[in-house]
């Protein structure tokens, strides 16, 4: 069974000083599955994501990738394993253009003796191709990222994840502060990623956004996993009630 899942996290525990951020959480994602990770502020969602992306290391518990035990010491290690995080503001540097942003840390180079030079032309072509594939219109292809909208910025991060063949894309609060149209674009991104067979974790506290695209929903509350639903079993209102009252809402139980 374990090999059927892309990633399995078992008994993850993490403390910051006296604060318990995660108290023995089990979490998994299947191949090509979109999992909505929901919960109120401070529930432990972002800590869980940061452990998965190598930003934090868990105090206890283990992570299995394709059934094999892994321990990510840094974001680079997680990325090399194919886990790519997309943050709304985090993934883009304002003072650089799209091509340079797209390839930060993984630039396309041309070797010349012992020296490596940027292949700016190829970087530009490849990045624009991917960003357009994600479905974004650009007014200026050479503009600095500071001029881009929230949706366009995410398109860079998502395009990056697809270009580098990520196996799991983690979208951290991707729809916050976006306009209604941009939210639709982001939800389209998610469908596009899924279509390519890539798994997605969609972290949010906006149930309606994630409900549209998720296969499964996992609810965290005060450092613990309190519920896990297949989307078909519940309504968005059930999930919201579960988050609100901290226990699985009756209505959804009736459905099971």
């Amino acid at each position: 069974m374990e090999k059927e899942k892309l990633i399995i996290m078992k008994g993850i525990r993490k403390k910051f000083g006296a604060v318990v951020a995660l108290d023995g959480v089990d979490f998994d994602v299947g191949h090509g599955e979109v999992v909505g990770l929901v919960g109120d502020n401070g529930a432990g969602k972002s800590t869980l994501v940061k452990i998965l992306t190598g930003v934090y290391q868990p105090d206890e518990g283990e992570i299995l990738l394709d059934g094999k035990k892994v321990a990510f010491e840094s974001p680079t290690e997680a990325r090399n394993a194919g886990i790519e995080a997309v943050h709304q503001y985090g993934g883009v540097v304002d003072t650089l253009d799209i091509a340079r942003n797209f390839f930060i840390g993984r630039e396309i180079v041309r070797k010349w003796g012992p020296f490596k030079f940027l292949d700016l032309k190829k970087m530009r072509e490849e990045s624009l191709k991917m960003v357009k594939k994600v479905g974004i219109q650009l007014r200026s292809e050479d503009a600095l990222a500071a001029t881009l909208s929230g949706g366009q910025r995410q398109a860079i991060s998502i395009g990056r994840a697809m270009y580098f063949k990520a196996r799991l894309v983690i979208l951290d609060e991707p729809t916050n502060h976006l306009s209604i149209k941009e939210v639709d674009t982001v939800l389209d991104f998610v469908r596009e990623i899924k279509k390519q067979g890539t798994s997605v974790i969609f972290v949010t506290h906006n149930i309606y956004h994630v409900y549209d695209v998720a296969d499964r929903l996992v609810v965290l509350d005060r450092a613990k996993k309190i519920a896990e639903f297949m989307k078909t079993e519940v309504t968005p209102e059930d999930v919201i009630d579960t988050i609100r009252y901290g226990t699985v809402s009756r209505k959804s139980l009736r459905k099971e």
């Binding site: 883009v92 540097v93 304002d94 650089l96 340079r100 840390g105 630039e107 030079f117 940027l118």
Partner: peptide, 28 residues
Amino acid sequence: TVVLTRTPFGNRLLATGGNIETARTLGV
């Protein structure tokens, strides 16, 4: 000029100065 604008080091230096957290999470 070549170092700053045409090498991976230059791109990473610009990224680090532009947004250090982003650069770090991207593995710089």
